[in-house]
Design a protein around this nucleic acid. Sequence first.
DNA 1: AAGAAAACTACACATTAGTGTAGTTGATAA
DNA 2: TTATCAACTACACTAATGTGTAGTTTTCTT
Lengths: 212, 212
Amino acid sequence: MIRITIIEDNNFAKTAWESTLGAEKDFLVIGSYSSFEEAMDSGSIKKSDLILMDIGLPGISGIKGAEIISGMNSKALIIMISVQDDDKSIFGSLQSGAIGYLHKSVSPEELIDAIKLAVKGGSPMTPQIARRVLKSLHKFKPKYSEENLTEKETAILNLLGEGKSYKKIAEDMFLSVDGIKYHIRSIYEKLHVHSRAEAVNKGLKLRILSKW
Amino acid sequence: MIRITIIEDNNFAKTAWESTLGAEKDFLVIGSYSSFEEAMDSGSIKKSDLILMDIGLPGISGIKGAEIISGMNSKALIIMISVQDDDKSIFGSLQSGAIGYLHKSVSPEELIDAIKLAVKGGSPMTPQIARRVLKSLHKFKPKYSEENLTEKETAILNLLGEGKSYKKIAEDMFLSVDGIKYHIRSIYEKLHVHSRAEAVNKGLKLRILSKW
DNA sequence: AAGAAAACTACACATTAGTGTAGTTGATAA
DNA sequence: TTATCAACTACACTAATGTGTAGTTTTCTT
């Protein structure tokens, strides 16, 4: 028996889900609320196996809510439901602990399948959203290529990131200020940028500069 | 008609897939090879809509292969097939451009469905693997801190990272240059820095700035 | 409604940054 | 040897940055 809590401020949708899921024999809707605060107060979240939550909740948003639920040591699975599918909503939800992301337009059958899939260890979401999640992984891939900085350039880039002036860097590295400028020109050229901030930005994103 | 290339060193599996996919009326297997090098030489990769590739290939591995294919401007979808389920294989593949990840034990029907799903914009993979991909996103979750920047400040910090001048930022945000300076003062104070480069650096490290 | 805080605008000024151009030196390759 | 190239040093100049100080407007708080 899968105990489910529904959090959705739109009464129409809420009622629809209640009856859809209530009719399923393996599901038990143990609570249904219009705001995260209510659901929290009721204590039904702690007793749930799965939580179906709208993103656009009044007060505490669905994303914040997911974060709170994940924060308490609940093993409840969270499926987000949204009308939006912008990066912020999708990644915000998934990073906050949601394991599924559905469109508000899901059919009753799809909703039921999604919940079953979630319980079986899957991550229900539309193919398009899944693809976007995958694509986001590309961004974390280390790059190399001819944009490789020399050791000295990397060291300078690090100091640039610390906000040191050319003069200070020159002192640190026992070079003239113009010597530093010389290297910085190369760095900018290799990274295709024209300022320190951009260089540091790219350096971190391309994993040339270490994270910590 | 979906043109498919198969790359698999195990002849047994290769033959099985050939016949499975060849029997499907929307699929056309245009090539079938035992190594990435062969497939590459044949030119069939460039003509494919979808590539079914084993991870454990002799010579150039499936992951390297995926990287190479993604590197050339091919629009071919790559589905990886593996016996292994370790992080390196999964994330290596997906970061290298594969959009699906299947176990070698897939049934013919599942394989066919997976290909159809991929073509429709989805990302075929087992529920368990999907869940693991999701969990990996948690690592990139923004750290919360009391040094929380306002929405406007975050937006400005982003633009600072792009190397835009105060003037440009002011235009972008419909504020005066001094208005921008006002916010930047706050940003610097909150992050305890005194320059753009430092601010961007900290912003990225504290995950205030995101990568997508 | 009054007061306080936050969100701006404004001006000034010393530093720093970014870039063009050019010369020097030492190592390396043809 | 001679030419080339990377790694500097040097100078000049404009644009941009960082910061101090001060005034105004908008938005909350009570």
